[in-house]
Structures are given as C-alpha cells and as structure tokens.
C-alpha cells in the first residue's frame, strides 16, 4: 500500500466515523464537536487531493467558524439550568432505508462509469491558478459573493437582535 492509499483510508475512516457520530449522538454538544472533527478530516482529504488552498479555507471557515456558530446557537437555545437538550431521533428505520437506497443508487450509478485511476500531473501551482482565475474570469461572482456575505451578516444580525 502506498502512502497515498494509507492516508486515504485513514482519513476516510475518521471522516465517516465522525459523521456517523454526528448523526447518532444523543447529546447535541457532542454532535457539534464530532462535526468539527469531520470537517477537519475533510480538510485533510482536500490536502490529499493537492488542494492546499481549499484545505486552508475549509479549516478556517468550516472547522472553526461553523463550529463556533453552532456552539453559540446551542448555548442560546439550551436551557442553561437543568438537563442538557438531548435529541432523540425519529423514523430511524425509514431514514436508514432511504439513505441506504440513495447510497446504493449513486454507487450503482458510479459502477457503470469508467473513472480514471491516475491523477494527471500538476502543471501549475494550484493556489496561484485559483487566484488568477478567481480574479480574472470569475471576478464578478467573487464580488457578488462579498455582497452576499454582507447581506447574510446583516440578516443574521437583524434576526438575532434583542427584542425591544
């Protein structure tokens, strides 16, 4: 087994295991923590795919940002005194069947398609390439993204404002 393969299997295992824990844990807070773990291992997967910039973004925005937001939301909505909010699940069997079926369908779909094994060699520095394309071809969506973030920020502030 090559290093690459070992890395892939390890990362995959961690990712899927933590994802399972996210959806199965009763304690919501633990669920968020497991989510942080799975997001981090996703960053690892990105690294394995030679996408360093993306791994960095993933870590910064997702693993740190989203987790922070989720924790704050839990803190706000949870009763601070008394039992922690636990969550039970509903329709577990049906959920299993549906997601299992979806998984099977997608995998079945992938089976019939020839997929490349070898990666093409990296011609350019990926980060540099991303930067260049982002500010030339995709500059408009880029700027719009900034506007979107501003709007989201304002919206969130408005929603979460204290009652007068």
């Amino acid at each position: 087994m090559t290093l690459e393969a070992i890395t892939f299997w390890a990362l995959g295992a961690v990712l899927l295991a933590s994802a399972l824990m996210v959806v199965l844990t009763k304690n919501l807070f633990h669920s968020v923590l497991y989510l942080a773990l799975s997001l981090t291992s996703t960053a690892g997967v990105f690294l394995a795919l030679d996408a360093e910039f993306l791994a960095f973004i993933q870590l910064l925005l997702y693993a740190v940002g989203v987790t922070t937001i989720a924790v704050i939301a839990i803190l706000v909505t949870e009763r601070l005194v008394g039992a922690r909010i636990t969550q039970t699940s509903r329709h577990i069997v049906t959920g299993l069947i549906v997601s299992g079926a979806l998984l099977a369908a997608v995998l079945g779909f992938l089976r019939g398609v020839p997929l490349p094994i070898e990666r093409p060699p990296l011609a350019v520095d990926v980060t540099r390439a991303i930067g260049q394309v982002l500010l030339t071809e995709f500059v408009l969506p880029f700027e719009l993204l900034a506007v979107l973030l501003l709007v989201g920020l304002l919206g969130a502030l408005y929603f979460a404002r204290p009652d007068e």
């Binding site: 049906t94 549906v98 997601s99 079926a101 369908a105 997608v106 079945g108 779909f109 019939g112």
Partner: peptide, 16 residues
C-alpha cells in the same frame, strides 16, 4: 426531505 430524497433515488434508478 423524504420526498426529495425519494425523487432523487427514483431519478438515479431511472437513469441507470
């Protein structure tokens, strides 16, 4: 969400 998921499955099945 159920509905959406089932629809997607159906679509995949039909395609394959």
């Amino acid at each position: 969400v159920y509905g959406v998921a089932l629809g997607v499955i159906a679509l995949l099945v039909w395609m394959r």
